[in-house]
Design a protein around this nucleic acid. Sequence first.
DNA 1: CACCACAGTATGAACGTTCAAATCGGGTGT
DNA 2: ACACCCGATTTGAACGTTCATACTGTGGTG
Lengths: 346, 346
Amino acid sequence: MVRKKPTLVSLAEAVGVSRQTVSNVLNNPERVKAATRDRVLQAIEESGYRPSAAARQLRTRRSMDLGMRLRPAAGGISGSVLDRLLHALTEAAQDSGYRLTLYSAGDDGEEVARIEDLLHAADLDGFVLTGVHSGDPRVDWLQEHGVPFACFGRPANGPDPFAVPYPWVDVDGAAGTAAATRFLRDSGYAAVGFVGWTADSAPGEERRDGWRRAMSGYQSAGELAELQAEAEDTVEGGAGAARLLLERGAEALVCASDALALGAFAYLRSAVPGRIPAVVGFDDTPVAEAVGLSSLSPPIARAARQIIEVLSHRLSGGPEGQGPRRHLLLEPSLVVRTPRDLGRPS
Amino acid sequence: MVRKKPTLVSLAEAVGVSRQTVSNVLNNPERVKAATRDRVLQAIEESGYRPSAAARQLRTRRSMDLGMRLRPAAGGISGSVLDRLLHALTEAAQDSGYRLTLYSAGDDGEEVARIEDLLHAADLDGFVLTGVHSGDPRVDWLQEHGVPFACFGRPANGPDPFAVPYPWVDVDGAAGTAAATRFLRDSGYAAVGFVGWTADSAPGEERRDGWRRAMSGYQSAGELAELQAEAEDTVEGGAGAARLLLERGAEALVCASDALALGAFAYLRSAVPGRIPAVVGFDDTPVAEAVGLSSLSPPIARAARQIIEVLSHRLSGGPEGQGPRRHLLLEPSLVVRTPRDLGRPS
DNA sequence: CACCACAGTATGAACGTTCAAATCGGGTGT
DNA sequence: ACACCCGATTTGAACGTTCATACTGTGGTG
């Protein structure tokens, strides 16, 4: 039974040194003589002492705490990517001695207000931003106020993402779809089609480009135009697009999302009873795993580690020039699955 | 441009009162005269003052911060329930002035260590526990040390959950499956079957019981035994069970999870081409929405609010007798969907 | 032998808040 | 007129840490 929380002072007089020496053992071990250090360390061990984050924070104005907004209703089939990022970030942050604090906000403006709050009240050290777009008020505010942050996702709709001064990590959609396309071709399908989104988004365009590039050596531009379709990001959208592309001669499909892929998959299964549909989705959501759908898995854990590394380097005042790369594009890996056999009518 | 962070003292001399008066305006408004209060409030407004959480925490030993473990890889199709809880908790906590801090841990023992850490170092005020079972080391430790906590999910495998002294909120699985069963019967299906899990878990048993109870008036015990099947919690498991139950005469199915339901759904669709399968899943995961599968939606937002309420009441030293209920069982709501038409072979 | 450099350790002050107790002005009751 | 009380406000101290500085003693140097 612990009687009282030990503090620097109580520890110090127990060992017979001053509080500053104990503090140094923790923060600047090289300054203290080895013998003293060992005695102090042992006392720390025995007493189960933990430095008070509040006191430390009050003095240093640093909280070792990072903030991240939790998007309202991640919703849909693909929202889970952000949830997975959250998991990975929690672990990565913890490993680096940081904690992760969540907040919610309705829109970007609200988020700025919330960030300002947390910065003033809780001294958060940095922030992780998602869904950054060009002209984003959050980026402007954070830059202007010199607050460290890192983004998951390149800034969309702007000029060259590699030119921006702030750090980001992103998934290379083009590399993903290109890899999937090559895989399908290597598996013997000559006419690989692509199912994309109607709404033109940066990730969407990019994913299409990857497919187009991988196919361009084998098909004419005209043929390629025939081999792609656009649909809303739903299961039935995918099914509709699959029907269209099947009529046009597509033998296998790369899709911009798992939702589309699921629809395409289900349609092909019923349309071509004999054969196992060759479909690849994107994001490797739980559904893909459940159904046995091949998909492109974004390296979330790696991305999270990078984000923490960048922030951590910046926060510990690392040299400007060195440190982890400011802009990192990660290739998703293709997860190949054999579709589950759901049985046939008896 | 803000020159310097305002503090109690700087504000106080700006207004011409003492720091304690400003503090009282914030914490005990009734102690200060209305006129003074207004002047202070205005100054606070203008300066954008925010009390320093660190200083407050140092003095009061309260952080207004709640902890929750993020399960390693929620994985599978149903992991999302905890993610949704996290979202809802973040909002509920924020509304009550609390913040949410995440941590990860490999197992319950590790979590205890982590909790001890956070308690000593960061003065977390309370914790949200998930997946509590009888003889849970976390519960023992927290109770012994008088740390406030609330559980999502009843303690499983123990005696009467309503007898435990600590608070929990849970989803009434039986009520859910019973409602789904009644709905299917009211829709004209006489023989409603049930697909459960092989592994016997408390929630699994409960969900089965709800179905059994709802059916018991219409079928003999023997017939009921024929109308249920057990399978692993996968899509193909659901498909296999559906085939079995279809042979035995089931006309509609209530399933213990969305994964099972998805399998059953897919099987029935291909086995009985003409008709739209009547299947209900559980947990209303994103897949269910994507595919257009009816499912039982757990009232996550309500649960989150309850958890925060209970903790908040306990933390603000509310009267022991009163306050929100310690044990709350919430009924899921049935979300009825019309399955998407994925098209037929042309 | 006096002086200086230096490693190692100790001391005072400050971070911004709240608790506990003290102070200040008016009324009121006798 | 005096003691008394009460609402409103102020003052001193403390929470546990780190920064900046001051203090030791030891050994080398002129």
